[in-house]
Design a protein around this nucleic acid. Structure first.
Length: 403
DNA sequence: TCTGGGGTCCTTTTCCTT
DNA sequence: TCTGAAGGAAAAGGACCC
């Protein structure tokens, strides 16, 4: 036993994408705004189109409405005003347009979100050096390794972090501090937005057990359905099941984990550094495409994906030796194929050649809605090029034209 | 009905070698 | 050459997350 209990924080930016957008377009505050789909015009284009000198001067009436949207796409996030109409994340844009036709539609702008992501994480590192990146808008922080992390159970450092992030970015965040990552993650949701929640081991029964199982990070819709079928709705009900019973019904590994999670136990450390396992690019087409009838179009998309992927690898400084493809058919079934070679590569043409081989191993008789290319088994450059391990002759086939 | 674009991790299946 | 077992690695699929 260590002298002090572990204190780990989970920090979650409040409605991150929407908040970043509202920093840029304060005139949209309070209005139903939906973010998703499409490509965003450059700021200069926008300003010129509306004769404005600054983004906040663009009149609200000039923004596109959901009702005018044509095509595929889903909502990435929505403001609370939009959510009150019943629209929300992952909903198709066409469906959302029926529920709230007047909502303003903003295309996602990952460059902006990444920019603010870097800003707030830099602030955190100044105050707490051991930080684990969990995506663009959230992190875990080891409060035990930071000055003031144990004061008032973590409240002092949490407040300091919030103040620093607000000053640097104008954005608010919510922080949960708990004995481990599992509980910290749940705690950060207790008091949103701009909240701080402190959780101790003794709070398990009162604060965690009444919650639905779905609140546990790692229990998704499928598992939740199965649990419900057994009459298990809350974490407390899950905790009451014997570990043997859980292992029997959910497998040795997952069943044991379910038991531990329900007891609020989690020994995972905060990992200060992390290397990616794979890097990929994928795209959903505007309409479903057929391998034969839309050969030229598919070929061009495929090449473009490989080029963008190669550029990503180059920019991030990786090479990989497992090249894979992913396709999604018009019935939403997904197939993947991959292939590992001896030498690492980040070369677009090599990736395309190897991914093309993978494509030949998957049925292409129905229409496709999505195509993706992936590179795994990553390493830092320095290895030999992979060109000499390419197959000498491609198998003749129906789809040679683009694959 | 509609379901994006990244990712990670785990389990199961398949393939290869001995 | 065939057959089968065993074990490991790679491939494939699925669940989950933001």
């Amino acid at each position: 036993m260590s002298a002090l209990p572990r204190r780990i924080a989970h920090l979650d930016m409040d409605a991150f994408y929407a908040s970043v957008e509202l920093l840029r377009y304060p005139q949209l505050r309070g209005l139903p705004v939906v973010i998703g789909g499409g490509r965003r015009p450059a700021d200069e284009e926008l300003l010129a189109a509306h004769g404005a000198d600054a983004l906040h001067e663009i009149p609200v009436a000039a923004f596109p409405r959901l009702r005018d949207y044509v095509g595929r796409g889903v909502i990435t996030t929505a403001t609370y005003a939009a959510r009150s109409f019943g629209v929300g994340s992952a909903m198709g844009l066409m469906k959302a347009a029926k529920l709230c036709p007047d909502a303003i539609l903003l295309p996602v702008d990952f460059d902006q979100y990444r920019h603010y992501s870097r800003l707030f994480k830099a602030e955190i590192r100044q105050l707490a050096p051991v930080m684990e990146d969990r995506g663009v808008d959230e992190v875990y922080i080891d409060f035990g390794a930071a000055e003031g992390g144990q004061e008032e159970g973590g409240r002092v450092l949490a407040a300091r972090l919030q103040a620093a992030i607000l000053a640097a970015t104008g954005l608010t965040c919510s922080i949960g501090v708990a004995p481990n990552k599992l509980l910290a993650k749940m705690a950060s949701e207790f008091n949103k937005p701009n909240g701080i929640s402190l959780l101790h081991e003794t709070d398990l029964e009162a604060a965690i057990w009444p919650l639905p199982c779905r609140k546990i990070n790692g229990i998704g819709p499928k598992t939740d359905d199965r649990l419900q079928a057994f009459g298990i709705a809350t974490i407390g009900e899950l905790a009451a099941r014997a570990p043997e019973w859980l292992r029997e019904h959910f497998g040795n590994s997952y069943g044991a984990w379910l038991h531990e999670a329900a007891q609020g136990r989690d020994e995972r450390p905060v990992q200060g550094h992390g290397e990616p396992v794979s890097i990929s690019r994928e795209t959903t087409f505007g309409r479903d495409l057929h391998a034969v009838h839309d050969k030229a179009e598919l070929g061009a998309i495929f090449t473009r994906l490989c080029e963008r992927l190669a550029a990503d690898l180059e920019r991030k400084g990786y090479v990989g030796r497992t090249i894979g493809i992913k396709i999604r058919y018009d019935n939403f079934k997904t197939a993947t194929r991959d292939h590992s070679v001896e030498c690492h590569t980040a070369d677009a043409r090599t990736i395309r050649a190897l991914a093309g081989q993978c494509l030949k191993r998957v049925p292409l008789d129905r229409r496709l809605r999505l195509l993706g290319v992936r590179v795994g088994s990553l390493a830092r450059p320095g290895q030999q090029a992979v060109a000499d391990s390419l197959p000498e002759r491609q198998q003749p086939g129906l789809f040679d034209g683009w694959a």
